[in-house]
C-alpha cells in the first residue's frame, strides 16, 4: 500500500441508493490531511457521505477506504477515526464523563487511560465543569460539545464532524473553530459539514460542494473559483478616476463588464482572465494616470462559488 493511500481518505466511484432514492452518486474523492468542508443544501448528500466514510452506511457501488482501512472493519477503522454525528441522542442515565469513559472502555482502552483520556477530552471542549451531571440535564450546545468530546477522546487521526457548530454560542463557536485549526495543524484529517459558509470559508483548506447527491466541485476555494469559466471573476477597484479606468478596460477582450460604483469612487470589473487583468492594471497604474486605493475580488469566496454552482445564497445549505 502506498504511503499516500495510507494518508488519504479515498472514495472510489461511490454510490449510495436508499431503495430508489439517490443518496450520493459516482463520488470519487481523495482527501488529504487538513480541513475539508462538505457544503451543499439539505439533501445534497453530505451526511450520507460522512456515514459512508464511517461505515454506518455501506456503499451500493464503489469502495471507501480511510487511511487505507476499508470501512467494513470498524474494529480497525475507529482506532483512527472519530465521528461526531448529527444524532442528538445518548444512552440513558449516564453523566457526560461516564458516557465518554464507557465508550473508551468499549473500544478496549484500559480503565486508567480511559479515565485520563475522558478528562482530557472534556477539558479540551470546556465541558469539565458539567462532566458529572446527567446528560439529560445538558443544553443543546452542551450535548453538541459532548458528542465532539466523544469523537476526539480516543485521539483519532481522522475526525469527521457533521454540523459540529450547530447549537454552539458565538464564543464556543470561535473556540471550537480554533480547536479544529489546531487539530488540522497537528496533521489530522478533519472532514466538516457546515451550512455557515463564512465559517467554512474561514477554516477550510478545501471544500467539496455537493448538490443532489453529486460532487459539483472540489478543491481549494480559490482554485474552484478560478476554474469556473462560465462565471467571470468580479473585482472592485477603488481609485480616483474610475471612468478613465473603465474606458481603458473596455478595450480588453477578457473584460466582460465594467461598471461604476454607486459612490463613483470605484469600478466593478468582470473578467475571464483575472491574472491578465491584474497585469494590465499594473501597467495603467505605472503610467501614473490613475491612483488606485484598493483592489479586491468580490466573488472569490465560498458564498459566491456556492451561489454560482448551486443556485442559492447558501442560507439553507
Amino acid at each position: 500500500m502506498s504511503e499516500v493511500f495510507e494518508n488519504t481518505i479515498v472514495l472510489d466511484n461511490v454510490s449510495k441508493f436508499y431503495g430508489e432514492i439517490l443518496g450520493v452518486n459516482r463520488v470519487s474523492l481523495a482527501i488529504p490531511p487538513g480541513i475539508t468542508s462538505l457544503v451543499g443544501p439539505n439533501g445534497a448528500g453530505k451526511s450520507t457521505l460522512m456515514n459512508l466514510m464511517t461505515g454506518l452506511l455501506r456503499p451500493t457501488r464503489g469502495r471507501v477506504t480511510v487511511l487505507g482501512i476499508p470501512t467494513d472493519r470498524p474494529e480497525e477503522l475507529f482506532r483512527k477515526v472519530g465521528y461526531c454525528s448529527q444524532f442528538d441522542s445518548f444512552p440513558r442515565g449516564l453523566t457526560g464523563r461516564e458516557f465518554i469513559k464507557s465508550f473508551l472502555l468499549v473500544s478496549g482502552i484500559g480503565k486508567k487511560e480511559a479515565d485520563s483520556w475522558a478528562e482530557k477530552a472534556l477539558d479540551r471542549i470546556s465541558l469539565l465543569d458539567a462532566a458529572d451531571r446527567r446528560i439529560g440535564a445538558y443544553s443543546k450546545g452542551m450535548r453538541q460539545r459532548l458528542r465532539l468530546a466523544q469523537s476526539i477522546a480516543h485521539r483519532p487521526k481522522v475526525l469527521i464532524l457533521d454540523e459540529p457548530l450547530n447549537g454552539l454560542d458565538p464564543v464556543v463557536r470561535a473556540e471550537t473553530i480554533a480547536l479544529f485549526k489546531k487539530l488540522a495543524a497537528e496533521g489530522l484529517h478533519l472532514i466538516i459539514s457546515s451550512h455557515i459558509l463564512h465559517e467554512v470559508d474561514m477554516m477550510s483548506d478545501r471544500v467539496v460542494l455537493l448538490n443532489n447527491g453529486y460532487v459539483v466541485a472540489e478543491g481549494g476555494i480559490h482554485g474552484v473559483r478560478d476554474e469556473m469559466e462560465t462565471h467571470p471573476m468580479q473585482i472592485l477597484i477603488r481609485c480616483d478616476r474610475p471612468a478613465l479606468l473603465a474606458s481603458r478596460m473596455f478595450a480588453e477582450d477578457d473584460v466582460v463588464e465594467a461598471r461604476l460604483h454607486e459612490d463613483r469612487g470605484g469600478l466593478f470589473v468582470k473578467t475571464r482572465e483575472p491574472d491578465r487583468f491584474y497585469l494590465l492594471l499594473n501597467e495603467v497604474v505605472a503610467q501614473g494616470e490613475i491612483n488606485v486605493e484598493s483592489i479586491a475580488p468580490i466573488d472569490d469566496d465560498l458564498s459566491a462559488v456556492y451561489q454560482y454552482l448551486i443556485g442559492s445564497d447558501g442560507g439553507n445549505a
Binding site: 464511517t54 461505515g55 454506518l56 470498524p74 474494529e75 480497525e76 477503522l77 475507529f78 482506532r79 472519530g82 465521528y83 454525528s85 444524532f87 441522542s89 445518548f90 444512552p91 440513558r92 465508550f103 468499549v106 473500544s107 478496549g108 466523544q150 469523537s151 480516543h154
Partner: peptide, 15 residues
C-alpha cells in the same frame, strides 16, 4: 428507537 446504537458502531470493537 433511542437513536443511540451508533455509538457502539463508532467504537473500535468487532460487532
Amino acid at each position: 428507537v433511542d437513536r443511540s446504537l451508533h455509538y457502539y458502531f463508532l467504537s473500535s470493537v468487532r460487532r
